[in-house]
Design a protein around this nucleic acid. Structure first.
Length: 428
DNA sequence: TCTGGGGTCCTAGGACCC
DNA sequence: TCTGGGGTCCTAGGACCC
């Protein structure tokens, strides 16, 4: 059996931990630049506010005092997430962290009789110790556990825990689950299903396997198997990410080449830092830029180019150098850029870096590595001391002065309640 | 006026090889 | 005029997830 633990309305719930006065009120959390709604309390869902709507379309609710909006505060959410995950990890032999607000628990080796109490205890403990409400679904496969967790969240009677431990319960749940709510059936496949008269998960599992295979692909067949109780999604994902992307939309459009160089340098340096944090190095560095796709009246340009390094790298100097080299080949004057980013891919473990026989700069690379270690040590000490600019206190001269978040709109940002010493002291 | 950011996997088709 | 068969690897695009 698997359990899926899902934090309810996670970002909103994190904000409410420090603003208990907002319990029971309509609250939303916004994406970067205060662009879109990305988390909603039950009350704001009930008002008809949809996931992903542009904030300006619902801002009038805020002005009318009917809605409370927060800019996103990822330092806060990341910190509370790791607290939730550590409580889960203490409770069972094996967990798989699936996203910032979800984890699968492997329940093999745990007496099935004790599982309902174990889950109920976890719900209570996480609520009491971290302050966040969670729902838990238990079922024979991960796809079914997802469905069970929806029930746990939707119906108060479950008190946060839904056990799908008999075939009768499984079939009942499938009958009540619209096909578009199934994990693995997305916005493209759902209309295709409806076209073929498949409205619920039960309709779907009643079709023959051959029908699924000939109309859809292997992933959809796996979903079908999982809904019937056969495990297809068992193994954990690999530890090492296969690509790392750092990108941002700008509060205003940028035309100036020098200004874009500073942004791209920042993004590349952040990618390099993330690589070093997980002991990785990358061969490929991609730089991309977007003009504003919502502005039909402006010329559009979405270039992207990838540079392959001879030797996999993770130092800021090398990643930034490659990103800027890529940038120079695609930058064109005369466009108004709204977004840019850097992707590093073709990733290996940094202790497995192979020297190239054409590499005449080995000594230079070793210097870069030593300098990176010093920069990381200084920056992490600065961050630990609670400095807001800690992570970027030491940086390359091509990067922007100031804070990483400068130039990103966040008018409704909460405090760094749990991670910044300055904020903690001030709040107290 | 204002519209996010970060990932994974599969597949079809082309390049290339024998 | 005639023009095989089979394999691998890579990439871009499309689907999915949070």
């Amino acid at each position: 059996m698997f359990a899926l633990v899902d934090c309810n309305n996670f970002f909103v719930s994190c904000e409410r931990v420090f603003r208990p006065d907002l319990e029971g009120k309509a609250v939303v959390v916004l994406s970067n630049n205060d662009g879109c709604v990305v988390s909603r309390s039950n009350e704001s869902k009930a008002m008809g506010i949809k996931m992903g709507v542009p904030f300006y379309q619902v801002k009038h609710f805020v002005d009318e005092g009917k809605l409370h909006a927060f800019s996103s505060n990822y330092a806060l959410y990341g910190d509370l997430s790791s607290r939730v995950m550590s409580l889960l990890a203490d409770a069972v032999p094996k967990i798989e962290i699936y996203s910032i607000d979800e984890a699968f628990l492997h329940l093999d080796g745990i007496d099935p009789e004790t599982v309902p109490q174990l889950c109920a205890d976890l719900v209570a403990k996480i609520r009491k110790w971290v302050g966040v409400p969670v729902s838990i679904g238990v079922a024979p496969t991960k796809t079914l556990a997802k469905i069970a967790s929806h029930f746990a969240k939707k119906y108060k009677g479950y008190k946060g825990v839904c056990m799908m431990d008999t075939d009768a319960k499984r079939l009942k749940a499938l009958e009540l689950t619209p096909i578009d709510e199934v994990w693995g059936i997305g916005r493209r496949l759902a209309p295709k299903m409806l076209e073929k008269n498949v409205r619920t998960a039960l309709d779907f599992v009643q079709r023959p396997c051959e029908w699924v295979a000939s109309n859809f692909n292997i992933n959809t067949v796996r979903t079908w198997e999982e809904l019937r109780g056969r495990v297809c999604h068992e193994e954990e994902r690999e530890e090492r990410r296969k690509s790392i992307c750092t990108s941002r939309s700008f509060a205003d459009m940028i035309e100036d080449e020098r200004e874009l160089v500073l942004r791209v340098s920042d993004f590349a340096a952040m990618c390099a830092q993330k690589l070093r944090e997980e002991g990785s190095a990358a061969y490929d560095v991609t730089t991309f830029m977007y003009t504003n796709r919502f502005r039909d009246d402006l010329a559009q340009y979405f270039p992207s180019v990838t540079i392959r390094l001879d030797v996999a790298a993770n130092s800021a100097q090398e990643i930034v150098g490659a990103a800027l080299k890529a940038f120079r080949t695609i930058f064109r004057q005369g466009y108004k850029y709204k977004k840019a980013g850097v992707i590093v891919s073709n990733i290996i473990a940094s202790d497995a870096i192979q020297a190239s026989i054409f590499d005449f700069d080995d000594e230079l690379r070793q210097k870069h590595d030593r300098l990176s270690k010093v920069m990381d040590a200084v920056n992490s000490a600065a961050e630990a001391s609670g400095s807001a600019s800690g992570r970027s206190m030491l940086r390359l001269a091509t990067q922007r002065p100031g804070h990483y978040a400068d130039g990103i709109r966040s008018d409704f940002r909460s405090r760094l309640y749990s991670t910044s010493l300055d904020d903690i002291i001030e709040i107290h």
